[in-house]
């Protein structure tokens, strides 16, 4: 799923206070990915709203802060469902991912929307409270060639043909908290008796399916109206 993390509250405050005339702010969360990664669910919405009230009260600024949830902010219909609430506010602080923020803007062009979270990567919780990147969305999956471990997302250098010289004790030289993806691939290939696969040289990757080929779009005729 999409992983995001809350922006520091001082940055959020700066965004809000940088715009004149905000009397009512609506904090909007999303019940999908950002709920699961503790960035923008109902709990975070309440906490961020409360913290902002505490901060603004200290500075003597009078901003009414309300709280709202959407089922999935990246859907037109779910944003439309709270459009009256949004129109009744001077600005929105969205705790949905970047897609959600832009959906609100598209549906309600008049709205002022601040991003309350940084959308970071596609990943998963490897243990409670820790999320790791697992997919880079490169648009051309090669997991069948690398024993189900993605060197694009999980090798810091996106290498396709084995580790770099910075792999030490199974860890990445960029950060010792990162497992070396190529060590993981090697270990799995070895366990399966398929080490010879490594002799096959992967050609340079075609990055046009990743964002380097321009803004991406997929379509499916039979799903269209």
């Amino acid at each position: 799923m999409i992983i995001a993390e809350r922006k520091p509250l001082n940055e959020i405050l700066d965004m809000i206070q940088g715009v004149e005339g905000i009397k009512e702010l609506l904090v909007v969360g999303c019940r999908e990915c950002v709920t699961v990664c503790f960035a923008g669910g109902e709990k975070e919405v309440a906490e961020v709203a409360s913290a902002l009230r505490i901060a603004l009260n200290k500075e003597g600024r009078k901003i009414e802060i309300e709280e709202e949830m959407t089922q999935r902010t990246c859907e037109n219909e779910f944003v439309d469902a709270i459009s009256e609430k949004i129109k009744g506010s001077d600005a929105v602080l969205s705790l949905a991912c970047g897609v959600g923020v832009q959906t609100i803007v598209e549906r309600l062009p008049e709205a002022t929307v601040f991003p309350g979270v940084n959308t970071t990567f596609y990943g998963r919780p490897t243990e409670p409270g820790i999320w790791n990147e697992y997919c880079a969305g490169c648009g051309n999956c090669i997991l069948h060639l690398t024993e189900g471990i993605c060197p694009i997302a999980r090798c810091s250098k996106n290498l396709l043909n084995g580790p770099c010289g910075g792999s030490q004790g199974g860890k990445c030289e960029v950060d010792p908290n990162i497992d070396c993806a190529w060590q993981l691939i090697y270990d799995r290939l070895k366990a399966k008796g398929k080490l010879r696969n490594l002799e096959e040289i992967m050609p340079p990757k075609d990055w046009s399916t990743a964002s380097y080929g321009g803004v991406r779009r997929t379509s499916r005729q039979d799903a269209q109206k």
């Binding site: 709990k43 309440a46 906490e47 409360s50 913290a51 009230r53 505490i54 009260n57």
Partner: peptide
């Protein structure tokens, strides 16, 4: 006691 309860006390 939830995090929000602690914040509410300050609020």
């Amino acid at each position: 006691i939830r995090t929000i309860d602690l914040l509410k006390a300050f609020e």
